[in-house]
Design a protein around this nucleic acid. Sequence first.
RNA 1: GCGAAAGUGGCGGAACUGGCAGACGCGCUAGACUUAGGAUCUAGUGGGGAAACCCAUGAGGGUUCGAGUCCCUCCUUUCGCACCA
Length: 810
Amino acid sequence: MSDSNYTPAEIEPKWRQHWLSSGLHNARDEDPRPKYYCLDMFPYPSGSGLHVGHWRSYVLPDCWSRYKWLQGYKVLHPMGWDAFGSPAENDAIKKGIHPAVGTRANVENFKRQLQEIGAMYDWSREVNTTDPEYYRWTQWIFLQMFRKGLAYKAFMPINWCPGCKTGISNEDVVNGRCERCGAVVTKKEMNQWMLRITKYADRLLTGLQALDWPEKVKTMQTNWIGKSEGAEVTFKAVAADRSEHPLKIFTTRPDTLFGATYMVLAPEHPLVPALASPTQLAQVDAYIANARNESDIDRTSKTEKTGVFTGAHAINPVNDEQIPIWISDYVLMGYGTGAIMAVPAHDERDYEFARSFGLEIREVISSPAGVAQEAFVGEGVMINSGPFSNRPSAQGRREIVKWLEDQGLGRATIAYKLRDWVFSRQRYWGEPIPIVDCSKCGLVPVSEEDLPVRLPDVERYQPTGTGDSPLAAITDWVNVACPKCGGPAKRETDTMPQWAGSSWYFLRYASPHAADALITEQGKKWLPVDLYVGGVEHAILHLLYARFFTMFLFDIGVVAFEEPFRRLFNQGMITHVGTSGKAEKMSKSKGNVVNPDDLVRDYGCDSLRMYELFVGPPELDAEWSDKGIEGVHRFLKRAWHWVVQHEGKWASAPDRDVLVERHLLIKNVTERLEAFRMNTIVSAFMEFINKMTSSRHAPDRETVEAFLVLMAPFAPHFAEELWQRTGHQPTIFGQKWPAWDERYTTADSVEIAVQVNGKTRGTIVVPSDAGEDAVVEAALKDAAIHRFLDGRHVRKRVFVKGRILNLIVG
RNA sequence: GCGAAAGUGGCGGAACUGGCAGACGCGCUAGACUUAGGAUCUAGUGGGGAAACCCAUGAGGGUUCGAGUCCCUCCUUUCGCACCA
């Protein structure tokens, strides 16, 4: 009979339609069960569609959501679109397709493909960052930050991407290149909107501790925030013209203060013009001009330190010593105070610089090998340090800071690597920044009732490259009455970065249609996110920004928690051999993309789902194998036949062996799900079916039902169809996750390995509960084992119940 | 350079707190059924050896009755960080 065959092409669309129309996956606010919020990182809907690598990231959380569902939670598992961004804008430039139009088409395609996964997304909660009803709240958040002084405009040198022709944030720069387009990032002085994320540095750091996140991600964020405890010390700088200027430096080693033999300012340091002596001015100017034009890559890839003497000197507050002030690009303006005291004896960089320029190296921490060859950066006993000599450096550090504080020359302080977030983009396809610049009132926020500030249509989407956004050319949009005084004013024409919309989208899913609030009281009950699944590539950018936004929204009372994502799981990517000949991340340009649509057509969605899980441990990268899917497809066919074949002919009572297999399967699947070891769960299912199909016992109904419920998160269509065929009403997702009974998870008898002097010489089958004496007795009777004893005396025996017996002889 | 993770058959990968290494799957080899099969089923499949056995988890040591697993020294790969004072 044809309908006894496994035909995914028929059953899968049918059940998807059924689930969709019955609203099975919709999260209901009024549902009394406990909530579980499982979130996938929402995609950028690119024109090339999903490949099997994307699939992997969506299958895992879907599987987990369905498991939680069967465990009795009301599950929120939403999906949406991070749809602002340059590819849509580039299409607009190239093909003349309006970004909104192109984005809409891409979303349609993505949505179709995602639905083919059979994922239980609640499409009634779909969000799109480019929807004005969505971005009005992105703008609203910006306004709240503006009111609290967290959004400010500043003229300063920032990272400029010549590829994207826009300013970008520090986080957007990866190894000196633009995270988005790969161009080498340069510097540009611009008037920029900034977000004061540094105000949250300490909370962003300490908040990490309680999170159930991969250590790797926590470490990356910790490094990014880069907290250092130290001291700020004020030196007196004396210019060549005898003018005096306080010069503040930051150091983590105030205990080495007596070893400071020169000072270094960053080329951008504001004191440089005042300090440079006339004789040195030309050299100083040349050095600064050069530094300004250099990219970070140029700057950090130098083999030797460079620098120039200013002609000025500084007075060391601890010993009144006069030391030269230099300028070098190894000191960064953005960190600490942009100036350092150089202690070459105890700092590798200072050591290198001192060597290059013949500056004094003075040892002030006693080091075993001296400092003739290299800097000593460890702790030790202080020497050559006046009244502070002969102390351990850690103690001296505290005493010197105390002394500086008493003298009003310094204080203990903390420095962070984290910088404020450059939030302006000179691009079209983003959220307009809702600020109006009035010549009379200054920067005035658009009033909240006037949100959203809609993105107007333009004719030219090209980034201008001049530092102005394409919006600047739309004069009838730009010119507006000041919200405060009604006088003539201009709109801000920069847009927000793509990270803006993704920094809070997880909140909007909880009440996506609320018109008068970012989130409703009812919606708040879904939050925070219980499990967040996505790639490790967002370890810093998105995850740091989202935490910052959430903390801010907590501070102004919008949400009741500071950390949005309790648990984070980074799944590995799929690699595949492409034109380069080696396995790489899938991408169109590498020619190694595998399209899931073909696989769904040939094998069915459930086969692809299970293969995506079977391919390897979810947290590791996995190489795609075109043949691999056939294994799970065969398994599904065999499992299908096993169920259909026994339908209506169930064993009236379970055979003991079948019972054990059932309980073992429940235990294995459940425990391995909890540990996110989905790949071994698929193996467990295969083993189960292998045993069942080779068993002479027919299964009982309860065993088959348990099998189907366990399979439901993995192969939902398969499970739902067979659920119905075995005489149930849909849906199987109304069932309860089965429980196992430890009494039935051990077989009656067990095979034990018998070793002689540590080498396995045979196996014997004994009752599971057999004790040492019984096993030894059985082993000695076994001919194969007996041979190895060779008549020698058993001197010692090691017995592990149910596992092994080791006989030591001779 | 610093830090983290990893290294197991032809391939992807199993192996719970030290206990029969290679589960499960791909591939491969035979055979069965077939007009045919890239369908399905059965058997086999780490290496060496005729066999008894021996050798095998990146390399080398160590601890232990017993090590893929623990300890030490290296090697390789991947990923972070990298003038942050």
